[in-house]
Design a protein around this nucleic acid. Sequence first.
RNA 1: GGAGAGGUGGCCGAGCGGCUGAAGGCACAGGUUUGCUAAACCUGCGUAGGGGCAACUCUACCGAGGGUUCGAAUCCCUCCCUCUCCGCCA
Length: 422
Amino acid sequence: MLDLKFIRENLDSVKIAARNKREKIDLDHLVHLDAQRRELLQTVEQLKQERNSASQRVAQMKRDGESADAEIARMQGVSNQIKELDGKVREVAEQIKALQSWVPNPAHASVPVGAGEEDNVDVKSWGKPVEIDFQPKPHWEIAEQLGMVDFARGAKLSGASFITYIGRGARLERALINFMLDLHTEKHGYQEVSPPFIVNRQTMFSTGQLPKLEEDMYHVDLDDLFLIPTAEVPVTNLHRDEMLQASDLPKKYAAYTPCFRREAGAHGKDTRGLVRVHQFDKVEMVQFVRPENSYEVLETLLGHAEEVLQLLQLPYRVIELCTADLSFAAAKCYDIEVWAPGVDKWLEVSSCSNYESFQARRGNIRFRNEETGKPDFVHTLNGSGLALPRTVIAILENYQTDEGTVVVPEVLREYMGMEAIK
RNA sequence: GGAGAGGUGGCCGAGCGGCUGAAGGCACAGGUUUGCUAAACCUGCGUAGGGGCAACUCUACCGAGGGUUCGAAUCCCUCCCUCUCCGCCA
């Protein structure tokens, strides 16, 4: 959420920022409503002032034992006027809120302006694709042959793009979760959280999923609750409507949760196997930081995610999203893509974003700035560390042998209790 | 699910129709004093929005939303949440 005053005073740049993100929003109308609201406010506040001072007089007269009937009769009319104007103010305020919730977070000045995916920028790459002297198999073949994933039964239980891990597949899933959580909590200093997987509307609003992405989420109608699309949602909302101590910042959390996504209209290309599924596991990192360090923190957060791939010895590249590819709420975002030789593609396994104060303002997450003594919004960041299915793809496809087995990456052997999946 | 109690500022906690934006305490900031640590005393200290170049001023906010009233933290209704007891249950 952007501050109304900020929008009012920076109308042109907010318009350009929205256009750069390819968001359509009638900002002129918003500004017009805002002016209307302030005008109404002036009128009604003047009446309220009159009412307040009249009330004082009535109280005084009553204390003095005088009759206040005339004053009371006069104020009845004023009261009715106030009631009517208050109604109008509320109406306009609701329209403002509705429109304001659709104003995207402007991209940071360093973000390249672009028209689409093709304008994203390569930042760096790590590792070299392994030399495979045989025809690499796609992960779904490997996984089925080794009895790790049951695609058909997943579909039977829930529908297309739902999968079931079995045996060593399930074990690999658990091993990866533990490996990643251990790394982030023990080495990178994050506190582990296990939040609810189902959250309410306000929670979804704060992180920016609502109102824009309502159709992309699973919803429990009876209770008006949503299945989380990422741990970012519950974990960022941990401190909603809270005043944090400046000394407590930065706050760093790591959480494992399943993630639920309807992926409406995404069926078809590039969705085979584990590439795009409705429910997947992910370890997520979330940080609450002081505004002045958030961009520094974004780089270290990215580093934490990269380290997972480095330890797994999986080649990857980092790209910076251009304005057109940046999400509604993010100000800057890096994607990490891992190399998958079987499907011959780079697959996104992590998104590391700085939301600046956009989510904090929506969720009212503040800290007391000791320099000014005033409350200030924190900056929130999050990054996947990592999403599991595509990490599994990369492991299966990069570590496959020509005998159809898969070598277990060294850092996972302890967690897997085996050196190879045969 | 049933019965009861309760939700007040960064935190604790009083108030239960007008003199209350809200006592008191803690925390925090500034100052005085005591040779350090610490303590005592004094002063200040909510948030948001509007108006004004400014000093300043107005309005709103006591879980949320309605209602009663000239006037609501205080009375009434609905909802949400917390706690205690009972029931149910992985």
